[in-house]
Amino acid sequence: MDLDALVTRRRPGWDRLAALSKQRRLSGVESDELLDGYQRVATDLSTVRSTAPDPSLVTHLSGLLAGARLKSSGTRTFSWSMVGRFFVEDFPAALYRLRRWWILTALINVVVGFALGTWLYYNPVVENTLISPAEVAQLVESDFASYYSENAASSFATQVWVNNVWVAAQCIVFGVLGLPVIYVLWQNVANVAVTGSLMHQHGRADVFWGLITPHGLLELTAVFVAGGVGLRLFWAWVAPGARTRLSNLAHEGRTAAGVSLGLIVVLLVSGLIEAFVTPSPLPTWARVGIGVLALGLFVLYVFTLGRSAVRRGITGDVDESLVEQSAPTAG
């Protein structure tokens, strides 16, 4: 075989395959062209290896095939534009699409929390069976307030962030089972209700609300979002609708995974507020105002960017091209 003649004849096709492999987006026709070019180069490589195994040419053709294979299989590389798209489109779209689930979860938890706290307030004998009078005095007089300032702000922020991410993760990971989500939410609300009722009974309501509100508004909202998303994941296989159970569970599972990533950032913000704002010397109205502002910005984020993204057809699920590994075709 005349190797030089082969190279001269095939080089335009090889160059075209290299160009398609580096192109960011391919049309349907270009995708078919990529597949055809891959097959032709694979044949050329086989011919070269069997008749005139030139090392440099074999290496060059193997590299072309590797690049085309990566392109055709839909492999993605990290870029900051992907991060930007996630937080501008995918994450808010998922939150907006699932808003009924987490808003209802939030409302139910708030009602249950206030009802439990009120009942405990008027029935202090119940709490006496859970905690001794000495422990109650220690909690309301010092422990509750000192909790927010006894450690360095940076380490405390990390501590509460990790703890809150773990709570949110449990709601989502165990969401497919349903009941564990309700249990996690109940524990969270019950702890707040018990502490709140004790602080109110001992005339420390101002301290309780002044310390829990700045970070608690955003923090609890994030936990309620995780709970609502987890319960939607459970409902995905209980009532799959037009999809099969497996398909619907996979769809909602991918969305839930994306939401969990976004909540890590939301909980980071609430953790920073808890560490640097809650124990700060700012007046109560200023600290509470920061908490209200943080929650307001989150709601605005969901109902502006999220609504806009959903109207453009974005659901919060991954790109369809990533759902299945399939060869590129025209269409």
Rank of each mutant, 00 (worst) to 15 (best):
R40P: 03
S149R: 11
R312N: 15
L293M: 02
A294W: 02
L116H: 06
P180I: 00
A93K: 01
D44K: 10
N151G: 01
R243M: 09
T51G: 05
F114E: 07
W14P: 04
S21Q: 10
R85Q: 13
D90R: 09
L179I: 02
F174M: 06
I212K: 04
A242S: 10
A239P: 00
T195Y: 09
V229M: 12
R24L: 12
D319Y: 05
S50K: 14
V277E: 12
T255A: 14
G74H: 03
T59G: 07
A66R: 08
R85C: 09
A327I: 03
A256I: 02
S72R: 15
Y38E: 09
R311V: 11
G28C: 09
V192T: 06
F87N: 08
Q159M: 11
L246M: 12
P180Q: 08
V83L: 15
S73Q: 13
Q325P: 01
N163C: 04
A137D: 15
Y122A: 05
G67V: 00
Y122H: 12
G196M: 08
G74D: 02
V323N: 06
G67Q: 04
V277N: 04
V160C: 11
G296L: 00
F78T: 03
V259M: 14
V140G: 07
L6G: 12
G271Y: 01
R85D: 15
F91D: 01
D90S: 14
L70N: 10
Y96L: 02
P328M: 09
R49F: 04
V88G: 09
V125C: 03
W102H: 03
